[in-house]
Computed example of a mutant assay.
Amino acid sequence: MTAPTADVVRSGILKRRTGLLILAALLAGTDLGLKAWAQEALPGAPIEGGPLDLRLAFNSGVAFSFGADAPAWTVIGVTGLITTAVAVALWRTAPAASRPWGIALAAILGGAVANLIDRAPDGQVTDYLHTGWWPTFNLADVFIVCGGLLIVALSWRTDRQEAA
């Protein structure tokens, strides 16, 4: 069996990076589409859904309204830097990372990009998922949290495997 050529390896790396960036873009687009829908359909008319309602809200801060009193440009700048760091991490780790690790980073990146794009015009993020016992949130937040939890789980599993 012959070793793959450098061009084949580069092509595979580019495909993997491109695939993860496309996944991030699809996740961001899904959330942005739902935010646009929520802004049209939900003002003054929340939809009761039992454990999860659809209710329009806006958040000028980040998680749990942290930083809501900060100037919008500060929140946008900091979240932009963090989003850039996640994009760089995805780009750099994509060639060697496991598929779940790449998917986790793509989920975080997609959610972060969606919230950053939504925040840019007016300094607020559109939220539309409401439980009644948790602050109102959006699908981008779900992507970020699930991606983060997957990274923690994968890190824990990797640490245990290395210890064994």
Rank of each mutant, 00 (worst) to 15 (best):
residue 122 D to M: 02
residue 119 R to G: 09
residue 71 P to G: 05
residue 118 D to P: 14
residue 62 V to I: 12
residue 71 P to H: 10
residue 29 G to M: 02
residue 36 A to Y: 07
residue 40 E to N: 12
residue 95 P to T: 07
residue 28 A to R: 04
residue 128 Y to P: 00
residue 128 Y to L: 03
residue 62 V to K: 06
residue 50 G to Q: 03
residue 116 L to E: 05
residue 70 A to F: 12
residue 130 H to E: 13
residue 114 A to Y: 05
residue 17 R to M: 08
residue 119 R to S: 10
residue 37 W to D: 05
residue 125 V to F: 00
residue 33 G to N: 11
residue 94 A to N: 04
residue 119 R to P: 14
residue 73 W to F: 15
residue 108 I to W: 11
residue 15 K to C: 07
residue 116 L to V: 03
residue 51 P to E: 08
residue 71 P to E: 12
residue 91 W to Y: 15
residue 26 L to Y: 11
residue 118 D to L: 00
residue 51 P to Y: 13
residue 13 I to Y: 03
residue 59 N to H: 06
residue 79 T to G: 08
residue 47 I to A: 09
residue 43 P to Q: 01
residue 86 V to A: 10
residue 53 D to N: 15
residue 129 L to A: 10
residue 46 P to G: 09
residue 107 A to Y: 01
residue 32 L to G: 12
residue 83 T to D: 02
residue 97 A to P: 06
residue 57 A to W: 10
residue 97 A to D: 06
residue 26 L to E: 00
residue 109 L to M: 05
residue 60 S to C: 00
residue 55 R to T: 15
residue 45 A to R: 15
residue 97 A to I: 03
residue 107 A to T: 06
residue 70 A to R: 11
residue 14 L to Q: 11
residue 38 A to G: 07
residue 114 A to L: 02
residue 106 A to Q: 05
residue 98 S to P: 04
residue 98 S to K: 15
residue 28 A to Y: 00
residue 62 V to H: 07
residue 101 W to M: 10
residue 58 F to E: 00
residue 102 G to W: 12
residue 33 G to F: 08
residue 42 L to T: 04
residue 25 A to H: 07
residue 116 L to C: 03
residue 16 R to C: 02
residue 22 I to Q: 04
residue 77 G to C: 05
